Amino acid sequence: MTSDEQNPTIFLIPGHWLGAWAWDDVAEHLRAAGHRAIALTLPGLDPEDAQRSSRTLDDQADAIERALAEDAPTGDRSAVIVAHSGANAPVSMVLDRHPESVRRVIWVDSGPIASGSVFAPDAPADLDELPLPDFEDLGAQASLDGLGPDDLERFRRRAVPEPGPVLRQAVALTDDERRDVPTTLVCCSITSGQIQELAAAGHPMFAEVASLTHADFVDLPTGHWPMWSRPADLAQVVASAALVQ
């Protein structure tokens, strides 16, 4: 077994409104255990970027591709990608473009999306950006279980509005080999059993799960943001999944 196989680089990709900072606790646990962990802030989520509201899913996918290439220029399947929530769109695009470069993808309360998917198809064409909703509205869409006042305060303070183009862009996928990339689904706000039932029924959010060649399911009961509610446990799940052949 090569050193890359023993210790693949783990790329941590945050969901909507979040930057690399969202993974701080998980990354700390992974690094303390000897793993190489790199958290990314996707284009459009950097508060210092004056053009951030114009960034697209293509920009985000390109940024992930560059990070993979810089870590392993030969594309030798030495990378593990961990994608939370809305990161499923750009990560699905990267898997479609370079399935040979990814050793395993780990979806955290998320999953692969189908070609043609649009996150917010009803979003107005003139919507520049979508700020983080108030927590009552957000909690109706995604579970806030496990988050304390400090977590919510940090979330509100550090959240960056999601670019309008990211919300409106349809994902175009063409390479079925993306479905052959070994996959782990970490199920938090919805159980693995429920996800598999919905996938079998062809539910639009989970239909792609049924097409995966190699899929493992891990239940980690908590809310939609386990990197804050159960960081040590999530890090352990990620570390274990990253080493599975």
Rank of each mutant, 00 (worst) to 15 (best):
D151F: 00
A140L: 07
A140E: 11
L138G: 03
G111K: 05
V118G: 05
F135Y: 13
R154C: 02
D145Q: 13
F119I: 13
D150C: 04
P124S: 14
P124M: 11
A125H: 10
T174H: 15
D122W: 07
V160A: 08
L167E: 08
A125P: 10
A140M: 06
P131E: 03
Q141L: 11
E136C: 01
A125D: 15
L173T: 08
D126N: 14
D134T: 06
A172I: 13
D145R: 09
A125T: 14
D126F: 06
P163L: 13
L138M: 12
V118M: 06
E136W: 02
E162C: 15
A172R: 12
V108G: 11
D128Y: 05
P112W: 03
E153N: 08
G146K: 06
F155G: 02
L127I: 09
L144S: 04
A170S: 15
L152V: 10
L132N: 08
D175C: 05
A142I: 04
A140R: 10
A140G: 14
L127F: 05
I106C: 00
P133S: 10
D126K: 06
D151A: 09
V171M: 07
G146V: 06
G139P: 02
V118T: 10
P131M: 00
P149Q: 13
Q141T: 07
L152D: 01
D109V: 08
R157L: 00
P149R: 11
L127E: 12
L173C: 05
Q141N: 02
V166P: 00
A172S: 15
V118I: 15
E153C: 02
W107I: 10
S115L: 00
S143P: 05
D150N: 15
S115W: 00
P163F: 09
L138F: 14
E177D: 15
L127D: 05
L152E: 03
R154V: 08
R157D: 11
I106Q: 09
F119G: 05
V118C: 08
L173A: 10
S115Q: 02
V108F: 04
R168T: 11
R158C: 03
P124G: 13
T174G: 12
D150T: 14
P165I: 14
E129W: 01
W107Q: 10
E162M: 14
L144D: 00
P133H: 08
P149T: 11
Q141Y: 05
E136D: 15
A159H: 08
S117Q: 03
P121F: 09
